[in-house]
Design a protein around this nucleic acid. Structure first.
Length: 509
RNA sequence: GCCCCCAUCGUCUAGAGGCCUAGGACGCCACCCUUUCAAGGUGGAGAUCAGGGGUUCGAAUCCCCUUGGGGGUACCA
């Protein structure tokens, strides 16, 4: 914390925010940015704020707002200020935390900039601007607003008004270097002349624009550290200028590396699964996702890689954030998810599995819904076979089937023919029945069946595989005897009988 | 086009001038365990630290150039 590249937040209480725009479902990148802000806030005992940037009325919706808030909560994050529930009331004293409810503040700030001469009304129409841009393009000049409205006389303004023109408001961007001291990237210097000319901060229809609202809000909410994606780095000089013009303290900036598609471009819906809810629906659990996201672009500097949210809070720091973009690696996420599924308590795992089984029951992928006790009993057989919760039916669905779909070809082990298989299954059935229901236990089943194979000169693997497919319909299953026990004496025998029937029928034909 | 950022195994990364004949993890390949599949264990392949110049007794680490990648450049956020 005394690192020189790490502005000591101990002096001023940390205030950070995540400012999602409810124009789509919670994006995995937004979730990570939120997480890093959250970790930073909690690590330093600061305040984590959620602000909704909903000024794009046409694209914003309460459904997306809900998706975003629910997703962040689901991951385990809580915020100290902002709306706690979608559409709900704000918590915190710097509110409101929805930009649509802060329009008066933007208006006030814009008026101030106008009065100070830092901003001016611009009467150019979109058509004029467009023509200007094209002309510059043709002349191979950089796109940049000419500034034609920057020095209008009162008379000229009156004329435009008389024409019925409405004005946007532009903020003056002076030429000259602007320095951004980024905690992650160091000193970044950009010339104001490269910023595209004076910036529109309020549209002709009166709606304030993003670059303006973020700054007004960050200033008003006392944000001390702006932690966001690298895609905002180039625009930061505009923000710095705005903070200064508004007479506000410029916050510290930390630009995070972007999450990339497998091909290395900025992560997009087109090339990747970006909605957090889609991961949730597949059965990724919060512990796995948080762990993975926390390590995308940041590391502890040690060899540990299975980390809980609390571990991340304890160890998080900005200087260890990577500068280069990070490709999203589903395999690694899957592995971490499996790690965390195995670490869940039995009760917890049953609770998390239940909705997936219910969904598959409704979808008709399993015939009946198992009880909690039944799921719990199966846990030792399936928990290390679940990379994600959604795999439960694939792994254990045969337990809850009324009748297995049996493929005669699959029933016959590679080295065996149909006749041998029928023989083997009949003999196995007899041996199991002979053992009786009382001693129907994994330990008691193995010896007689093994003995049977030896006696008949069969490879145990072949016999066991035939039985396995007969009672599960699959070649890959949990351990055979545990599976039989979980299935129960009667059902095991019934399934063996049916498999024999199926084989006899297909062999006879 | 212009501006900005970045550059260590396929991927995520450790590394802040000598501890590096570059470490860990995922994935991959073997082997062990084993009735299948997993899980677990052990071992292995895998990076001339993008390339080239400097600086230094010494560079993956500092500087410059080149190349490559990414981002930005709206009356979108």
């Amino acid at each position: 914390m005394t690192d020189p590249t790490h502005p000591a937040p101990s002096h001023t209480p940390v205030r950070v925010r995540i400012a999602p725009s409810p124009t789509g479902p919670l994006h995995i990148g937004t979730a990570r940015t939120a997480l890093f802000n959250y970790l930073f806030a909690r690590h330093h005992g600061g305040t984590f704020i959620l602000r909704l940037e909903d000024t794009d009325g046409a694209r914003s919706s309460i459904a997306y707002e809900k998706d975003i808030l629910d997703g962040l909560h689901w991951l385990g994050m809580t915020w100290d200020e902002g709306p706690d529930v979608a559409g709900g009331a704000d918590i915190g004293t710097y509110g409101p935390y929805r930009q649509m409810q802060r329009l008066d503040r933007y208006e006030e700030a814009a008026t101030r900039l106008l009065d100070q001469g830092d901003a001016y009304p611009c009467y150019c129409t979109p058509e004029e601007l467009d023509a200007e841009r094209k002309a510059r393009e043709a002349a191979k000049e950089q796109p940049r607003y000419s500034g034609r409205c920057a020095r209008l006389t009162p008379d000229q303004r009156a004329d435009f008004l008389a024409e019925g023109r409405r004005s946007a408001i532009r903020f003056r961007i002076p030429d000259g270097p602007i320095v951004v001291d980024d905690i992650i990237r160091g000193r970044v210097e950009i010339d104001g002349a490269q910023l595209g000319g004076d910036l529109v901060i309020v549209r002709a229809d009166g709606n304030p624009l993003y670059h303006f609202t973020v700054v007004v809000d960050d200033a008003a909410m006392g944000i001390t550290h702006v932690i966001r994606g690298e895609d905002h780095l180039s625009n930061t000089p505009k923000h710095v200028l705005l903070f200064r013009a508004l007479g506000a303290a410029v916050p510290h900036f930390a630009h995070l590396p972007l999450i990339l598609n497998p091909d290395g471009s900025k992560m997009s819906k087109r090339k990747s699964q970006t909605a957090l809810s889609d991961y949730l629906a597949e059965g990724f659990i919060r512990e796995g996702l948080v762990n993975y996201l926390g390590l995308l672009g940041w590391s502890t500097g040690t060899d540990e890689d299975v980390l809980s949210l609390q571990d991340l809070v304890d160890q998080f720091d900005l200087p260890h954030v990577q500068k280069g973009g990070a490709r999203f690696d589903r395999e690694r996420l899957l592995w971490l998810n499996g790690q965390w599924i195995r670490r869940l308590s039995p009760d917890e795992l049953v609770d998390r599995l239940r909705p997936f089984l219910e969904a598959d029951r409704i979808a008709g992928r399993i015939a009946r819904m198992p009880s909690d006790e039944e799921i719990r009993a199966l846990l030792p057989l399936i928990r290390e076979r679940l990379p994600m919760l959604g795999a439960v039916t694939e792994t254990a669905g045969f337990f809850f089937a009324d009748q297995l779909e049996l493929d005669p070809a699959m029933l016959v082990p590679k080295r065996w023919g149909p006749q041998t298989t029928i023989e083997g299954l009949r003999a196995a059935r007899a041996a199991i029945a002979r053992g009786g229901e009382v001693t129907f236990e994994a330990d008691e089943l193995e010896a007689p069946l093994r003995g049977l194979a030896e006696e008949r000169g069969w490879k145990v693997g072949d016999l066991f595989m035939a039985i396995r497919v007969a009672i599960t319909g699959r070649t890959a299953t949990p351990p055979l005897f545990d599976t039989m026990v979980a299935l129960g004496f009667q059902r095991t025998l019934a399934r063996l009988d049916r498999a024999i029937e199926v084989l006899v029928a297909s062999a006879g034909a």
